[in-house]
Design a binder for these strands. Structure first.
Lengths: 240, 240
DNA sequence: CCCCAATTTTGACATATATCAAACATTGTG
DNA sequence: CACAATGTTTGATATATGTCAAAATTGGGG
């Protein structure tokens, strides 16, 4: 488990960020953007395996992922892990900690990554003064609630095949939204992590992916994934 | 499916509400409380079976449950329902709709209930002026995220027995927090609704509850539930 | 560059939960 | 008050996924 964290002296400018549309500063005027820029204090890099934060730590900041890929997980006392999400560039992470001022999960980089730190107290201050920012913060918090309820639905009422199909299509969409190919990319997580996220054992994940390949829906070799029949995958999710 | 909704002319006063500690106005000064009072416009009653809101409707307000019991659910095209939560007095409902301005689920009264309507645009306004209110709103949104992640954990990694035990203990705690007996109460929902919420079939719910009774953990007759061995139930949740 | 540790795949078998079915209980309503 | 609709329990059986195990593959570090 790497811990190395190195800080970049470069000032992060939201106004110049190519993730601006996905992230926090959406719909702000020029001067409002400048004030947000002043608040996002650091851009920090994390090596693969490094923790962005840990369960139990004091909450200070939200983090906007600038580049890379994270997972969030809850570790049980006995070592079992439950992955609660995979986060990619442009997404905001750490919102679960607002309610208690303590982080309720671990966030771990799945590849070398960079994040912008957003001190939450100052974000609250600024969002009192900039209604568009306030509104956007509320939307982001609510979007997280909607996302979680989607996963509840998946875990509560879908079969292994449907869960995997939904998972792959979700990743595809998110890569597409970031300008990457939606039909071919590298999985950043292990079968075990996928399984934990989807409430399945790693063997079931592996078998189901093999099945998909056999049926000509995808091509998967280890972590490289290619979609061959998106419509076919979508059809799997429809109520059986 | 009842639809009858009758409005009470009585002004709801947050400052006089016995749920104040559980609900929105926590930690406000007297004058701040008065301004919140002015915002919570109506107190409305819903008969059992009535919808507080429906999936697809335009979002205007959050609702604070004054008395009674609700469920939230997503209806699939084919008629399958997935229950996403059970809400009781003092809890705030409707937060999933903030992100898109459209309600993403149905909220249905499971018994005759009363709610306070909180127009969200005005709540945003007021929370820009009252930091304590802003902070509390953020905590409530975040608490919902944490709650959902707890359910993800339950659905993703627990067996039927553990899910039921966790569910019953959660209800017990919430009744206790409202001054009701934590060891004996009426279930407001059907086995089918419990099953939907927990990702189980109603038969499994019924069988597992019968099991619990056989082992002397609870006494259950239809909807009346009595806890006989809370420690025993808690032991069931611990990682096996 | 090679080797060790971690990850993935696949098979055989076990088991928890779903499915189907029937009897029974409860509730609300005319 | 009775009856129809709805909800609950229980049994027999089916099935999806988990468990255990072994071999194959991959990738990072010395």
């Amino acid at each position: 488990m790497q811990q190395s964290v190195y800080s970049s002296p470069l000032k992060t400018a939201c106004s110049a960020c190519n993730l601006r549309e996905l992230c926090l500063p959406i719909e702000l005027s020029g001067s409002e953007m400048t004030r947000l820029d002043a608040l996002v204090t650091r851009k920090t890099a994390y090596r693969r395996g490094a923790n962005l934060y840990r369960c139990g730590e004091k909450f200070h900041s939200l983090y906007a992922i600038r580049s890379g890929f994270f997972k969030t997980q809850v570790l049980h006392e006995d070592g079992r892990e439950q992955v609660t999400g995979f986060q990619m560039a442009g997404e905001i992470i750490g919102m679960d900690a607002i309610s208690s001022d303590i982080h309720t999960c671990d966030a771990v980089a799945l590849e070398d990554s960079e994040v912008c730190e957003i001190p939450f107290a100052r974000l609250e201050e600024l969002s009192r003064e900039i209604p568009a920012l306030q509104r956007h913060l509320h939307r982001i918090l609510s979007r997280e609630i909607v996302r979680d309820q989607g996963i509840m639905l998946l875990l509560g009422s879908m079969h292994a095949e449907e869960r995997l199909a939904a998972f792959l299509l979700n990743l595809s969409q998110r890569f597409a939204a970031r300008g990457y190919s939606p039909t071919a990319f590298q999985l950043r997580m292990t079968r075990q992590e996928i399984g934990s996220y989807l409430g399945l054992k790693l063997e079931t994940v592996s078998r189901t992916l093999s099945q998909f390949q056999l049926r000509g829906l995808i091509r998967i070799q280890n972590k490289s994934l290619q979609f061959l029949d998106i419509a076919g995958l979508q059809a799997l999710i429809k109520p059986h």
